[in-house]
């Protein structure tokens, strides 16, 4: 069983790295780029079990360590 977690900056939180990437894309000629936000992607392998319980557990992981909810949102998908 695998958990896939996207951690992204909340709306309204400045993303200096995303802005730098946006500028680099424009410098490469991608003129239609209107914005870039950089985030994180994590995969957590879990022992097989109940998907609902796994999601609740991963949510707890996000609250305690994987995301900083002052500045970040997260989204969890459980597979298999």
């Amino acid at each position: 069983m695998k958990a896939r977690i996207h951690v992204t900056l909340k709306n309204g939180v400045l993303d200096p790295q995303g802005k730098a990437i946006e500028n680099a894309l424009k410098a490469l000629g991608f003129d239609n780029v209107a914005g870039v936000r950089q985030g994180k992607f994590l995969e957590v392998d879990l022992a097989p079990g109940d998907a609902g319980a796994a999601k609740a557990q991963v949510d707890d992981m996000c609250q305690k360590l994987l995301a900083n909810t002052v500045i970040e949102d997260y989204d969890i998908e459980i597979e298999g």
């Binding site: 939180v13 400045l14 200096p16 730098a20 002052v70 500045i71």
Partner: peptide
């Protein structure tokens, strides 16, 4: 200290990267 919650807020990368 911010990550423990002993102080409020969080740090982002410097604005000029």
């Amino acid at each position: 200290l911010l990550e423990t919650g002993l102080l409020p807020g969080a740090m982002l990368p410097n604005a000029n990267v």
